[in-house]
Nucleic acid binder design. Structure first.
Lengths: 348, 348
DNA sequence: CTGAAAGCGCTTACAG
DNA sequence: CTGAAAGCGCTTACAG
């Protein structure tokens, strides 16, 4: 049994518990000699502080909780469609947490449950995390933010909406990304461009659509109303939108999808219709999850800096002074337009 | 501040702390009336026990730790190749943990680090998890098992090796899967079948190769030594093996890859060489991660029951009596041969 | 069936 | 710069 406690170390080093605690926590007012002596005892005994006891004593919990939307997360994992949003989040956050002895706990939140707030309260009460990472769409949910503020739990919001400035905010410029994607197509000579929106409850959906509209307006290119398909991020939604667009009398020569799944769906339907991508139809997708690079053709896509955003969120929570900080400006991370084989000039 | 403690509940209900604790933990010897009274107080106050305090008091930690190999995990996430092993593990384990109020902590272990055991000790000492889920290759590491036994931490091993019977073991029949894959090709008429092995430190690599050899022997089909390529699970290894096989005077008409990445690599090289899959070359892959189903052609593959295995591991740890149990027989979960478009009869 | 006491392993004020 | 005391919020024996 690894029952090495602070007492054992104190005895070994011939000092008080208090001094050991100071050394462990890099406290001030310790002689170098004393510090060395205690360190030696710690190493000899292989002492590691018990988190639960630490927490009980009144220190941090060294726990960060990441809330993810339950249904889409489980569905994506189950469908095996390769969306690796959560993996990218872990990739960014876990190593950052490790650096400072923190642990990351992934919790699934059911946004449509009446018990949502109850569940959040339970997690806060039982785990007492030092911070919470909020992902979309929860990162835009005022009532959750209210709750976190009330409970005085520091939080960082990934892809926050535009209309609430509270908390740490980490984002990418979705609007600008859509502008860049649209310009890329305009530069290639496209004028008839279709746009598939993401789920309405995600703020990014609106931002992307705005960017598209702005870029088209800038170029003096008109947008026929039927070119914009309201939809969701899902494959199924992509299928429906693709069918609608392909059925038009003058169908678009290019399509911007708001998610990789949508784009993959368009690719599938295009093939079914005998349309060649990119010869007959150019296609750009948002997010750049794995299947996109492996598809045939590989798709041009906006790469979402999910890992970098999660890392930043963890860093802000670990380093930050939490709720004492005034609302700071959002931290905007760079995205990238990855040009692959799915975008070429239109046929005529 | 959600400072609702057991004391508040006790006062509200007019009983002792002890009684509240009994109700919370479904202890025996409580009147129904008393139970109701306490429950009402708990609901009214929104009381949720503090985990750290619970743990300190001597109860379970309600924490399960899953150890994953650091380097391949991070590399895969970084490369964005869509291997979703970890996601599948989370998909299986997290909901199972939630059911009983447990939390799953994902920890990355550096197998090649001199401090491996130190790190494990630190995690056990600081977190005091109620159980550990071991994934390959750690699930076959005797020294880790020794350490866990010594520390008396219950553990479940995913894809354990054959030569160590300790702990809970959850596996799929890798050998049989290879047999089935091989038979599928034999049934189609293939006799010249290439086999790409996985990384040597993974027990499954050996098991799969054995299955292949056994099935071939059963069918009276000889295996030329050069058809078996020792390699790793990586894309790069797949490229090298593919090149070696394609360079043979009488190249195989079919290839079994030990991982999806290898298979994808073979597919890429085949295209480069002007070989058509499946017309010129049939291809089967192991694991069935997302890009495999989206590739062109979609690949026939052995689907690995990762999520089911993780769920079972969590269940065994949560329900199990841990180390008091005698070594039980391994729990073998069913796999599946998913036949897609990459396997057809050989040309001649 | 219910309650008062001790203790888990730390940290935070408070002395010296 | 170092130490003795109190307390965090629970649970586990132990009484009654």
């Amino acid at each position: 049994m690894g029952a090495v406690t602070i007492k054992h170390v104190a005895k070994e080093a011939g000092v008080s518990l208090q001094t050991v605690s100071r050394v462990v926590n890099n406290g001030p007012n310790v002689t170098d000699a004393m510090r060395e002596r205690v360190r030696a005892a710690i190493d000899k005994l292989g002492y590691v502080p018990n988190m639960a006891a630490r927490r009980m004593g009144g220190s941090k919990s060294y726990l960060l909780v990441a809330f993810n939307d339950r249904k889409p997360t489980l569905e994506k994992w189950r469908a095996g469609r390769g969306s690796d949003w959560v993996a990218q989040m872990l990739l960014g956050a876990i190593p950052r947490c490790e650096r400072d002895g923190y642990h990351l706990l992934l919790e699934l939140l059911d946004g449509h449950s009446a018990k949502l707030h109850q569940k959040i309260d339970a997690i806060i009460s039982s785990l007492r995390p030092d911070g919470v990472i909020l992902t979309p769409p929860h990162s835009q949910d005022r009532s959750i933010i209210d709750q976190l503020e009330h409970r005085k739990v520091p939080y960082a919001r990934l892809s926050p909406g535009e209309d609430d400035e509270r908390g740490f905010r980490v984002r990418m410029d979705e609007r600008q990304a859509a502008v860049m994607a649209t310009r890329h197509l305009l530069d290639l000579g496209h004028r008839r461009i279709g746009f598939l929106t993401g789920s309405a409850e995600y703020a990014v959906s609106t931002e992307r659509l705005e960017g598209f509209r702005a870029a088209m307006a800038d170029a003096g290119a008109a947008i026929a109303p039927e070119w914009v398909r309201q939809g969701e991020f899902s494959f199924e939604s992509g299928i429906a939108s693709a069918d609608a667009l392909f059925a038009l009398r003058g169908p678009p020569t290019a399509i911007i999808a708001s998610s990789d799944e949508q784009a993959l769906a368009v690719l599938h339907r295009a093939k079914d219709m005998g349309l060649d991508v990119p010869a007959d139809l150019s296609l750009i997708s948002f997010d750049d999850t794995p299947p996109i690079a492996f598809s045939l053709p590989p798709l041009t896509a906006i790469r979402h800096p999910t890992a970098a955003m999660a890392e930043r969120a963890a860093a802000l929570l670990i380093e930050g002074h939490g709720l004492d900080m005034p609302p700071s400006p959002p931290c905007t991370l760079p995205f990238e337009l990855v040009v692959r084989g799915s975008t070429v000039p239109p046929r005529r």
